[in-house]
Computed example of a mutant assay.
Amino acid sequence: MSTTKKLRLGPLPKTENIKLTFACPACLKADLDRYAAMHAQTYGEAVDAMTLIPHMLEAFMSGDRGFKRGGQAIPKVATK
């Protein structure tokens, strides 16, 4: 590990993944790439923005009080 300041997003856990695709502004992609570079420097493991995005979203949602107060997750739609 580097001696630089710890980032809010810590080392990444291993998880099962489902692929999603989304569009974002070029400036956000540049910031995500910079964050990925800082994360790699801090934790000594190379990651890219695509790897970080799910963990960032999870951290955001788990810290959102309004979302937590919203109750149960949205139920799955039954399929025939």
Rank of each mutant, 00 (worst) to 15 (best):
G10M: 00
I74G: 08
K19L: 07
M1A: 15
M50N: 08
R69S: 07
T4L: 15
H39S: 01
L32P: 00
F60S: 03
M56D: 00
K19H: 10
L20V: 05
K76D: 11
Y35I: 03
L57C: 09
L52C: 05
D33L: 06
C24V: 10
E45K: 03
L28H: 07
Y43T: 13
S62H: 08
Y35A: 10
L7I: 11
H39V: 03
T42R: 14
A40P: 09
M50I: 11
L9C: 14
A26C: 05
T4I: 13
A30M: 10
I53P: 05
I53A: 07
Y43K: 12
H39W: 11
P11Y: 14
G10S: 08
A73Y: 11
D33Y: 02
L7D: 02
L7C: 08
K5N: 05
K19Y: 00
M50E: 00
K6M: 04
G10D: 15
A49F: 08
L28D: 15
A59T: 05
D33E: 12
A73R: 13
P11S: 06
I74A: 02
K14F: 01
D48H: 06
R8C: 03
L20R: 14
P54E: 02
L28W: 01
M1E: 14
A59M: 04
A36T: 07
P25A: 09
F22T: 11
R69T: 04
T51C: 04
L57H: 01
G71A: 07
D31M: 04
T51F: 08
A59K: 11
L12R: 06
K76N: 11
C27D: 10
T15N: 09
G66D: 13
I74Y: 01
D48K: 14
H55R: 08
A78L: 15
S2C: 03
K29M: 03
T3V: 12
Q72S: 15
A78Y: 12
T3H: 14
R69K: 14
I53W: 04
T21W: 11
D64Y: 00
K29L: 07
T4P: 13
A30C: 09
A26D: 15
G71Q: 10
Y43I: 11
T42L: 03
H55V: 02
L32E: 07
K76L: 12
K68P: 07
G66S: 08
C24P: 12
S62K: 14
A46C: 01
D64M: 10
R69W: 04
K14L: 00
L20N: 09
H39P: 01
G10Q: 06
L57P: 03
D64F: 02
A46R: 01
D48Y: 00
F67M: 03
A59H: 06
M38D: 15
H55C: 00
N17Q: 05
H39Y: 01
A49S: 13
T51H: 11
A46G: 05
F22S: 06
V47G: 05
A59V: 01
A36R: 06
L32I: 05
